[in-house]
Nucleic acid binder design. Structure first.
Length: 423
RNA sequence: GCUCCCUUCGUCUAGCGGUCCAGGACGCGGCCCUCUCAAGGCUGAAACACGAGUUCGAUUCUCGUAGGGAGCGCCA
């Protein structure tokens, strides 16, 4: 069987680390089996979906190097297909129109909660003889009343829930637009998805989705529900509490391979190995080895990995990323040492590229100001002033020349009795 | 409230009945190296949530308890 996986975010914000890890797992599973990885944008919520979010997701995935073979496929472009399937279910009496008002359903829910029951639709419109006038109905899926749904989750193991816990969910709104639990099924079915790898907040939706597959006479895919990621403090990682978009990590000076490595080790391991190249991940990863419990994001460890990659990746590769930070910080690197050399000297002193650029600023300014060929005559007053004092104090000014960078760094640092972070 | 799910050092994890008075990594402490800061080497403290049961033997299997999470939308 050729593996087909997909990542299906809804474009209502940036790509955060939790989503990125889910995408990574799906991507790895596909790459490992020479399968296909598909990107699908779940934008059926017209209210909250934005083109900016779509772009943010695309940017995030591109930065991480998670390339997809098919897509992006937008659900909003498949409304015709959904309508067709809804009609089919209606024709086969596997779905029905429901005329209950939102208010009525709300009242029902409250009553059930009050009685200590699990709120669910009571099936009032299941067998309606008279069709009420003047109401645009929703369409509900006729869920089986008896029996239970059992499935083998690749990560959680066997999960079973009895059908009487489930109610008849709405698959189409009065205006005909489809709802999530229905579109996922139709899409995954149409796209031939073999492994559905998604966040474990979807576990509870899975049984009802399986019922829809059955109604459609389709074989359900294999499911793998990955646990969520908690914040540094162990609390839920939410947008307003520490959740950052992956591009923020780029801006903060992290290398994509470091973030990827960190993310893959969060909830997954291969013996005692900590460092994985992308190729190794592809070779060793198996979704079945993913842990069940939620894990807390640990920035300290990410920092360690980031530095590891700054030191061990080919300097040229790191320099490319570093260049972005120099320009981001408005530092001219026109004159001065080669960026590869900066990486070579600075990598073991800082935790991020952003820091590396910031701390190298003084040297680039020095090079510019003390250019032996031209700058001797016109020291740039503003930038050169404090630096000049430092160098004079170090008696470096006389013999200054763009020599070995690390010697200068070491002498400046020694004089100031601090790490370069303070310079 | 109801249903489903989770539980090894502070954190990420190894462990798939005896090899575990529980191993690795980040972080933290100490020592060494060193003109500073790092980096590097060595080293130390630090965990099987609790209670029953199964078993000759449980971190590992079963069941409870406690704690945590998710879902219960005409959101995805």
């Amino acid at each position: 069987m050729t593996i087909r996986t997909r990542f299906a975010p809804s474009p209502t914000g940036f790509l955060h680390v939790g989503g990125a890890r889910t995408a990574l797992f799906g991507w790895l599973q596909a790459r490992a089996g020479q399968g296909t990885f598909i990107l699908r944008i779940e934008d059926t919520d017209l209210e909250r979906s934005t083109p900016e979010s779509v772009q943010a997701i695309l940017d995030g995935m591109a930065w991480l190097g998670l390339d997809y073979d098919e897509g992006p496929i937008f659900q909003t472009q498949r409304f015709e297909r959904y309508a067709q399937v809804v009609q089919k279910l209606l024709d086969e009496d596997k779905a029905y129109h429901c005329f209950c008002s939102k208010e009525c359903l709300q009242a029902l829910r409250e009553q059930q909660m009050k009685d200590g029951d699990k709120p669910r639709y009571n099936g009032k419109c299941r067998h309606l003889e008279a069709i009420p006038e003047g109401i645009d109905p929703v369409v509900r899926f006729r869920n089986p009343h008896s029996g239970k749904v059992v499935f083998e989750d690749l990560i959680r193991g066997r999960i079973s829930i009895s059908n009487d816990e489930l109610d008849d969910l709405i698959i189409a709104r009065p205006d005909g637009s489809p709802t999530y639990n229905f579109t996922v099924v139709v899409d995954d079915m149409d796209m031939g998805i073999t492994h559905v790898i998604r966040g474990d907040d979807h576990i509870n939706n899975t049984p009802r989705q399986i019922n829809i597959y059955r109604a459609l006479a389709a074989e359900p895919p294999i499911f793998a529900h990955v646990p969520m990621i908690l914040g540094d403090d162990g609390a839920r990682l939410s947008k307003r509490h520490g959740a950052l978009g992956v591009m923020q990590y780029r801006d903060d000076g992290y290398l994509a391979p470091a973030l990827l490595n960190y993310l893959v080790r969060l909830g997954w391991s291969h013996g005692d190995q900590e460092v994985f190249s992308v190729d190794e991940m592809v070779e060793l990863f198996d979704i079945r080895d993913v842990n069940r419990k939620a894990s807390a994001f640990n920035t300290e460890k990410l920092n360690w990995l980031n530095q590891h990659y700054m030191k061990n990746l080919p300097a040229g590769e790191v320099a490319e990323q570093l260049a972005w930070h120099f320009s981001d910080q408005g530092i001219s690197t026109a004159s001065g040492p080669a960026l590869e050399d900066v990486v070579g000297v600075q990598a073991e002193r800082v935790k991020s590229l952003k820091e590396m650029a910031a701390q190298s600023r003084v040297f680039f300014e020095a090079y510019e100001a003390f250019d032996p060929n031209a700058a001797k005559k016109h020291l740039r007053p503003v930038a050169a002033e404090p630096l000049e004092a430092v160098l004079k104090n170090l008696q470096l000014l006389d013999d200054w020349s763009p020599g070995p960078l690390h010697a200068v760094i070491d002498r400046v640092a020694a004089e100031l009795k601090v790490g370069m972070g303070k310079v």
